[in-house]
């Protein structure tokens, strides 16, 4: 009796295109280069971008409410530098990690509070926060600090290795951490009132208020989630690099935002999901791998990602303009 006619939604179109793009690029890469088309390359996309997945998941929450957070790259950098600094002072890992996560959470809370209570535009306050934390990085240390803590080393190196055919493939344990974050985020967005409120706010904030949803708490909450995820991404990144450097990850906020956008999240809010963001990250990973294989200037990665982001934004605009027109006629 109930017909399930799911009309093509913006997020679906975007997702389909993103998936197709990923497969296409992976296949093209495999055709062009030896050793590219392997399980190992595929798993390395996760190994190399686990931190970005976590950050992108966090920022997706903010984007879904129609906000933006460009402080994430600085949060990642600060987390790395600060943990490296504390570990160098001999602090144990089990204290350092909660401390840096708390810093991320606090930063997110302050941003959210300024946005929600003081009505400061998200981009200006997060821009200021970006500078503040980037400056704090340099205050802590201007040179790269190596991490020699045993726990971090263990976390960095523990992996599952297995053979696929003739090639060795490996899967680092911290990737699981990233995947757990993705699953939790998926669950929260889909099955909790908090998550649904995120969508409602992005869809129509005024209505969300009239319908009795706790707009204030949720809006501050998404910035806290974004801050927390960025800090967690920073922890994973410090496993990955085993160092903290004040200028690392410059401009990474764009990678995170473009991952979400490529994966179908609308910058105006209300539409999107975390799986899209993961695919967005993977697409960027493939681009990076191809640029490396082609032995190009690393800046090509940035330029290509920006171009791709641009393409998807234009696509979103066209779809939404067309949707508006159809509504006008109906």
């Amino acid at each position: 009796m109930i017909t399930k006619t799911k009309s093509l939604k913006v997020e679906n179109i975007s997702m389909i295109i993103a998936c197709a793009l990923f497969v296409l690029m992976f296949v093209a890469g495999s055709a062009m280069y030896d050793h590219f088309g392997s399980v190992s390359t595929f798993l390395n996309l996760f190994n190399d971008n686990a931190y970005l997945i976590v950050v992108a998941v966090g920022i997706t929450f903010v984007l879904l409410t129609g906000g933006i957070d460009i402080s994430v790259s600085s949060v990642v950098a600060f987390t790395c530098v600060f943990s490296a600094f504390l570990l160098q002072r001999g602090w144990p890992a089990f204290i350092v990690i909660p401390v840096v996560l708390l810093v991320g959470l606090l930063n997110g809370f302050l941003i959210g509070y300024c946005v929600q209570v003081f009505h400061i535009q998200p981009f200006i306050i997060t821009l200021a926060s970006q500078f503040l934390l980037r400056g704090m990085c340099a205050v802590v240390s201007t040179v790269s600090i190596p991490i020699e803590n045993d726990f971090y080393k263990a976390a960095a190196l523990s992996k599952l290795s297995f053979k696929v055919g003739r090639a060795n493939a490996k899967f680092y344990l911290y990737v699981f951490l990233a995947l757990i974050v993705v699953f939790i985020a998926y669950y929260v967005l889909k099955y909790t009132r908090f998550g649904r409120t995120v969508y409602a706010i992005g869809s129509n904030e005024l209505s969300a208020g009239y319908m009795g949803l706790d707009v204030k708490r949720v809006k501050i909450g998404v910035y806290m989630i974004s801050g927390f995820c960025a800090a967690l991404g920073g922890v994973i990144f410090s496993f990955y690099t085993l160092a903290g450097y004040s200028l690392q990850n410059m401009g990474m906020e764009l990678d995170a935002i473009s991952s979400a956008v490529i994966g179908g999240t609308l910058l105006t809010g209300g539409v999107g999901n975390v799986w899209g963001s993961v695919i967005g990250v993977l697409i960027q990973g493939v681009i990076q791998t191809i640029v490396t294989y082609q032995n190009l200037n690393a800046w090509w990665t940035r330029v290509t990602i920006a171009a791709l982001l641009c393409l998807f934004i234009v696509l979103q605009r066209i779809i939404s303009i067309r949707a508006d027109r159809q509504k006008g006629k109906g």
Binding site: R196, S203, L206, G270
Partner: peptide, 18 residues
């Protein structure tokens, strides 16, 4: 109408008290 256009009909009826 003060509902959320991006959400499903059912969700609009029940959001906040699912």
């Amino acid at each position: 109408v003060n509902l959320c256009p991006d959400l499903s009909v059912a969700e609009n009826v029940f959001i906040g008290r699912e």
